[in-house]
Design a protein around this nucleic acid. Structure first.
Lengths: 204, 204
DNA sequence: ATCCGCATGTTGACACTGACAACATGAGTA
DNA sequence: TACTCATGTTGTCAGTGTCAACATGCGGAT
């Protein structure tokens, strides 16, 4: 017969992950608790250990989920741009918007000790999101809106700017509303791309 | 007679703060423990409560100490610049250098929930550091190296860039050495200031 | 069909933490 | 000298992450 509470949960891992993402969103990383996740999933306090070796591994999984959502958000935001440069700027706005929507999740993604994310596969967890930004830069270079050459320094610079805006906004250091912050990010990315283009002659 | 271990520690508060700063530097915020701080100060696990209402209040004090060191670091770095613009750029480099030198301390300063820092005095703890940067911007405006007008958006933009570089570097997302990261920050700030100046004509 | 292995979930325990309450100490003062 | 009370201590509690031992029951081997 069908049991109300089957002993074997079938795919507890996914349930735990969803509960963890929700909990992070509600209380943030500092109040995040393995036992509370288990409680919400309706299992004993030790059940999670069958799916995640430790609390930190669960957090890494949460971070990975966050990077996938961030990538999707950037791509969606980017799609409304018409020129390559516009797409680059909107991509940055998508980044900031994501951070403002899920500030706690954003914290987990970037403030966990780095060695946790290592994955052993040689590449960081946030590689997909990085590649989206990189693609925008390369496209803008192809369109002549950014100087040709190694795109990496340009990517780092653009990423740093939007990451800084996101971090400062999330930590309450920018006295701007959500919408105003995104608008500010738009302006800032414009300024930066102008600088990248006009800086060429004097570069190193 | 002089006692080896006087019951009254005289200025335990300062001792605790120093131990806390050292502990943060060694193990980071996640492994930071009130009881370990007390242990290092040679007092019982509850003595800190006579000087700090809670663990978080001690962390706030640690953060405040960090902001003072950051401010000093920026001013020292800035002093080597000859033009206002150069000083602005070096100021940013000082910011990044500080973060790389004391990454855990930097974490505490910016990733504690914002309401903790509130101080009730109406101004954030990091106000001094902010003012140093603002001073550089205003000076550069006066020298004609940056467009005149409200300096706030310029300050936010410059701060975001260096903060982003610092954060990404500290979290292991920039594959650069300490020195290379600072050099990169130098280049990035140059690019940004060029953009700020050349962007003027089209600005809204 | 039956049995059994083993992944999955549970119960129990331990050391540690932040915090509170009650008590101890001793320096400054009336 | 005796009182006060800021400062430090001991004792305790609930809650946490993690380990060990045990329970359950699905799926394959017989």
């Amino acid at each position: 017969m069908a049991r109300a509470e089957p002993y074997h949960h079938e795919n507890l891992r996914q349930t735990l992950l969803e509960a963890a993402v929700a909990l992070i969103g509600e209380v943030g990383p500092r109040a995040f608790t393995l036992r509370e996740v288990a409680r919400r999933a309706g299992v004993s306090h030790n059940a999670p250990y069958r799916h995640f070796p430790s609390k930190d591994d669960l957090l890494v999984a949460v971070a990975k989920e966050g990077f996938e959502r961030l990538t999707a958000g950037m791509q969606k935001s980017l799609a409304r741009g018409r020129t390559a440069l516009e797409q680059l700027q909107l991509c940055g706005c998508g980044y900031v918007d994501f951070a403002l929507r899920w500030p706690h999740h954003f914290l987990v993604m970037f403030d966990l000790p780095h060695e946790m994310h290592s994955e052993c596969k040689g590449e960081a967890v946030g590689r997909n999101a990085f590649d989206v930004l990189m693609g925008c830069i390369v496209a803008a270079q192809g369109a002549g809106d950014l100087p040709a050459g190694d795109p990496l320094p340009l990517v780092w610079t653009a990423w740093s700017l939007v990451h800084g805006i996101a971090k400062l906004a999330v930590s309450g250091n920018l006295p701007l509303s959500h919408a105003a912050t995104v608008a500010f990010a738009r302006q800032a990315t414009v300024v930066l791309s102008v600088g990248m283009m006009k800086d060429k002659p004097q570069a190193r």
